[in-house]
Simulated scan of single mutants.
Amino acid sequence: MSVRNLIEKNSQSMTPSERKLTAVLLSDYPFAGLASIQELAERAEVSPPSISRFVTKIGLSGYAEMQRSLIAEMKDGDRSPVEIHATGKQIEGGYLSGFLSRAVGQMQSAGAAITEGQFNRICALFADPKRNIYALGGRISDTIAQHLSFHLRQARAGVFHIPRDPERWPEYLLRMKPGDVLFLVDFRRYQPNLRRLAKQAADRKAQVVLMTDKWMSPANKYATEVLAVPIEISTIWDSYAAALAVTEAMATHVAEEDWEATRQRIEAWDAVRQTEQESSS
């Protein structure tokens, strides 16, 4: 059984710090696990003894055995070519088809980096009617947060998109109750104010779900769940195609899990929209 499969098998029993470690390991699999235990501990913001306990927990005798297993996987060709970034390579041939091909590879890498266990845990948080959901992203990545909040609002009540103006954030922070969820999206060229917002939400006992990249937003220090999605496709800008796909998968899964309630809410939503259109015409 591969190290990735061992992690997946034990994902349900992991602590918040072990989930952070899992996100780091899977975001750059298998290379992250080939670093020294001190380097991995610094990157994941956990202690070396915590890593040793984690490795034992997933069924290996120690960190050295995990590294040997990862090297063996590489030699056996277990790592898919779509997980290897083509850094610095220009798109050859038709640009559109080449770009879309890289985007497909990026999405497949996202599927390998996020376990089904983690996906289901986060969807359960989003679906819990006792929890309010707050969403916000960075300068460009806020479109991902808006996408999630718009679709979740059609499926359930208590979903809020936080405005980008930090002067308005106290209003939303003061609403947060213990157990509520803050969904943050922060990719490289990270925003310091999102780190501060994550800390303030965590101080209020909210659950911070962070979507970031393999380099890890500083906000990950306060996150209970970290979704490390690939964003590199060797073009002038990073691509958020995989991030959007993961976001749509979460919103769709939440909506379909209780379809009867979702159907009733969408019908009521559309009825209000229709009334507004008729009154304005």
Score class of each variant (00 low, 15 high):
L148C: 07
R102Q: 06
A135T: 13
R168I: 07
H147Y: 07
F150T: 11
G94Q: 10
S69C: 14
A155E: 02
K75G: 02
G77P: 04
L148E: 03
A124R: 11
I71W: 01
R102E: 08
Q90D: 11
T87M: 04
H85L: 09
R175T: 05
R164C: 01
E83T: 02
D76Q: 05
L70M: 15
R139C: 10
L70A: 01
K89E: 12
G105A: 04
I84G: 03
Q200M: 14
V82T: 13
D128A: 03
D78K: 12
L70R: 00
L148T: 09
Y190H: 07
H147R: 10
R121G: 10
L96W: 05
Q200A: 14
G105C: 09
S69A: 13
I133E: 02
N120K: 13
A127R: 05
Q207V: 15
L96S: 08
D142C: 14
G158A: 07
K89R: 06
D180M: 06
A124N: 13
I84L: 11
V159A: 01
L136W: 05
Q191C: 07
I91P: 00
L100K: 04
R68S: 15
R196D: 12
Y95S: 03
R164D: 08
Q200L: 14
S101D: 08
F119D: 08
E116G: 09
P192K: 01
L136H: 07
R153C: 03
E92Q: 13
L174N: 11
S101E: 11
F187Q: 12
A198P: 12
I162F: 08
N120F: 05
T115N: 00
S141H: 12
Y172F: 15
A202R: 15
H151F: 02
S149E: 09
G98F: 02
A86K: 02
Q106L: 11
I71E: 10
R139K: 15
F160I: 12
T143H: 12
R195L: 09
S141G: 14
F119R: 08
I84W: 03
P170I: 00
E92T: 14
S149F: 00
F99H: 09
H151L: 09
V159Y: 01
A112R: 09
G94K: 05
V181S: 01
D76V: 00
Q90R: 08
Q106K: 02
D128P: 01
A110N: 06
G137K: 05
I140G: 13
R102C: 01
A127K: 01
A206K: 14
L136I: 15
G105S: 07
P81L: 07
Q90Y: 03
Q200G: 06
G88D: 02
R131A: 05
S69N: 13
Y190D: 07
